[in-house]
Design a protein around this nucleic acid. Structure first.
Ligand SMILES: [Mn+2]
Ligand SMILES: [Mn+2]
Ligand SMILES: [Zn+2]
Ligand SMILES: [Zn+2]
Lengths: 139, 139
DNA sequence: TATGCTATTGTAAAAAGTTGCAATAAGGAA
DNA sequence: TTCCTTATTGCAACTTTTTACAATAGCATA
């Protein structure tokens, strides 16, 4: 747990408290780098804080995502995964082999403007998931 | 079950069999019109075929979606819902109140072309989910 | 109509995710 | 340091979803 990451001040700024459970969960997400399922977070974070429980993991992930510290994404099936909210991006997933490609936000800007003006919604700029067949799986 | 719907020939054309379980499941989706969760499908379809079981419902929904008879969508949380694959559309969901708006495919065409040429993927044309705040919830 | 192949289903058990509520502890204030 | 407020957690029970495998039943063929 002696790593550069320290979310305590940012949490406090929004009225949230820093707890050993949250430290362990954020730590797991930080060091894994990519997307983690709640089960994976539970397994990893438990190494930092062994008395961690599942309800806490699910609630924390959902809450921190709502507060914009995390991003939730749907990758394929019906599974939800989380990652630290850092750079803005989207996903393109092959529903054959599961292979994923990151997509920049820039090419979506025009579409977003159109949808916002036609629907009145203010769109989130992160984590849209597209599905398709990768070049290998098209044959 | 005396309604116009008859999927048997289409199923057969792909090597799938028509069973009373599948009839009941398709019937439920047909008459409800919109999106149904697996649990909702289970409850509704059981009225047509009372010995239906959960594993069959989950497997059937996933399989029929894979075979393009159904569309799967993620609406908010981590929940997956299904509907009959008919018209091509996408969804825009308010993550505050849950309100949803259908989005035509046309405005996505340009983006799709760009993503296909930049990634080599062939994109699915159905059921992308965007999130945002509806006009009411922006205040 | 009877037969055979195999797609589909049910069973039973486990895994994953959710809920309500009482107990705990973070962190601001005295 | 101690106290207080209340955000956060653990517990226990429950619901939803998944899995492996043996039994069943579509439907093509004769
Ligand atoms: Mn991502
Ligand atoms: Mn839809
Ligand atoms: Zn692929
Ligand atoms: Zn709203």
């Amino acid at each position: 747990m002696t790593c550069s990451m320290n979310y305590a001040p940012q949490l406090r700024a929004q009225g949230l408290r820093m707890t050993p459970q949250r430290k362990a969960i954020l730590h797991a997400l930080h060091h894994s780098g990519g997307h983690l399922s709640p089960t994976q977070v539970y397994e990893l974070a438990r190494k930092e804080f062994s008395s961690l429980t599942e309800p806490t993991v699910y609630r924390t992930l959902e809450y921190l995502a709502e507060k914009k510290f995390l991003l939730a994404a749907h990758v394929g099936n019906g599974k939800i995964v989380y990652e630290l909210a850092q750079n803005q991006h989207h996903h393109l997933i092959c529903h054959q082999c599961g292979g994923t490609v990151q997509v920049e936000h820039a090419p979506l800007e025009l579409l977003y403007r159109q949808l916002e003006s036609s629907t009145g919604y203010k769109l989130d700029s992160s984590h849209v998931t597209f599905f398709g067949l990768c070049s290998d799986c098209q044959s």
